[in-house]
Nucleic acid binder design. Structure first.
Lengths: 124, 124
DNA sequence: AAAAATAGATTACAGGTGTAGTCTTAAATT
DNA sequence: AATTTAAGACTACACCTGTAATCTATTTTT
């Protein structure tokens, strides 16, 4: 699995919003949340390319970036990894931790029920 | 939140198994899973102390280590953090990702149902 | 008592990370 | 045409991390 740092992920996440996109568009998108210097973001884009998380095509003297993977695929892998590390690969203890500490809303519960429901339908 | 590296967490995790414990006991516990040199583990213990994740008391010339927090508390904070970063703080999309990629077993589903059940009982 | 083992403290060192600054070159502006 | 701007490339640098090795002082062992 490609390992991304937090900052790198944030840049990639800005690209996932809509792509392909130029560096300036990504910088623009990040400007709301982050106080990053333009150069910082370009460094991170370079590192993402080097890690194989992005590709680009030249258009004039600009690069047009495209992610090399889907956000869902990446977060799924990260999730598996996370759950393996902290909960020996089982997902329920994570949810249970949230429940115990009152971090679950009725909406979360409804969504979880739907996930379970869909899963069960799929089993038939 | 105290930020621990992977290796640091693994050491702390070995202490959580049973504590207080000496460095040698921790080294012993880790020897099954990791090929770490004794010195490596001691370095990590030192860093954990410095980060405030552990304390120790002297007993003769050894240190007896104790974690400064519970495993559940730590993993809950890590989980919140994780879910915030990757799923905007909502837990269902994580579970849903597992479901879609066939990562959920019947046992997981049963456990999740129980978590939901308990939560609902608690609401009354 | 001398030597060896061992506990922790200190030092090491390469690669990753956050966070830019400088350099080079080509395009845009005056 | 000369100058300014802006894109990406390259360089920088401190702190974190993984992974120990060396130093120092105290116990054990012989």
């Amino acid at each position: 699995m490609i390992e991304l740092s937090k900052a790198e992920f944030d840049v990639l996440d800005a690209l996932w919003i809509n792509y392909p996109a130029t560096a300036s568009q990504i910088i623009e998108r990040l400007s709301d949340d982050k106080q990053w210097h333009e150069k910082t973001i370009k460094t991170l884009l370079g590192r993402l390319v080097k890690k194989g998380a992005l590709t680009f095509e030249k258009e004039g003297r600009q690069y047009i970036y495209t992610p090399c993977m889907e956000r869902d695929d990446y977060t799924l892998k990260e999730s598996q990894n996370f759950i393996e590390r902290f909960f020996s690969g089982r997902i329920a203890p994570l949810v249970s931790g949230f429940a115990k500490s009152e971090q679950l809303s009725q909406q979360d519960i409804n969504e979880l029920k739907k996930v379970i429901d869909d899963w069960e339908k799929n089993q038939k």
